[in-house]
């Protein structure tokens, strides 16, 4: 029971006796946990009530997409392994696109991959690429997520997903740089080897990540 204007403190029973007397006059509720009860933190997911008849997507989805997008951008931005040609950076952002797609499906792959990578471009000052990136990485996440999760995520499905998704990404960048941004054929071609390397390594690391994270947080992946 909690009364009006009361200051209630919830603490585990092992700490309660030490509660500091000089804080505030408060009502201490000591919560007991059975002696050797092993709590499995991950299984105990917070229960989110459904969003009712709201027309918005669930708060769980908003939070997940927001966080995955931020993660994609941060990783793109932070894991730069210096590598010379055009865009001037090889990074592991690709791994996050594949991770999102393989773990949470094509929608997450498309949104987090596209928006996250475009945000990284904006923040790092490659804003000119942001619209292209949005389409290229979005398509990559979408395709990889659709193909990679076929038949419950068999290894060949992942591989096919990486190849098709990567092909979409590379083609989009090439066409955009050649025809829209008008870099000329030379610069547009110079980008292709970096992109191939990035897809290969990103795909491998992304699959590995998806595997590892699903194992350490079994409740994921629906």
């Amino acid at each position: 029971m909690v009364f009006r204007s009361e200051f209630v403190v919830l603490m585990p029973c092992s700490t309660a006796p030490q509660v500091r007397f000089n804080v505030y006059p408060c009502h201490v509720v000591s919560v007991g946990v059975a002696e050797d009860e092993q709590r499995d933190v991950v299984k105990e997911k917070p229960r989110i009530l459904s969003g009712g008849d709201s027309k918005f997507v669930s708060p769980r989805t908003v939070a997940l997409y927001g966080v995955l997008t931020a993660l994609t951008a941060a990783i793109t931005y932070m894991t730069v392994i210096p590598f010379p040609p055009t865009r001037g950076y090889f990074n592991l952002g690709e791994a996050m696109v594949f991770f999102s797609a393989f773990t949470f499906g094509w929608r997450a792959g498309a949104i987090c991959g596209g928006v996250g990578s475009a945000a990284a471009d904006l923040l790092a000052g490659f804003g000119m690429f942001a619209p292209t990136t949005l389409v290229a990485k979005g398509a990559e996440g979408l395709v990889a997520g659709t193909i990679g999760r076929m038949k419950g995520g068999k290894p060949w499905a992942y591989a096919l997903g990486i190849i098709c998704g990567g092909a979409c990404m590379i083609t989009t960048y090439f066409l955009s740089e050649w025809l829209l941004l008008d870099f000329g054929l030379g610069a547009a071609i110079a980008e292709i080897p970096t992109n191939i390397a990035q897809v290969t390594i990103g795909g491998a690391v992304g699959t590995l990540l998806s595997h590892y994270v699903k194992q350490s947080m079994p409740s994921l992946g629906r």
Partner: peptide
Amino acid sequence: LALAISFRFIP
């Protein structure tokens, strides 16, 4: 909102 959250969490 998801976009705003992501900008907030990048740093």
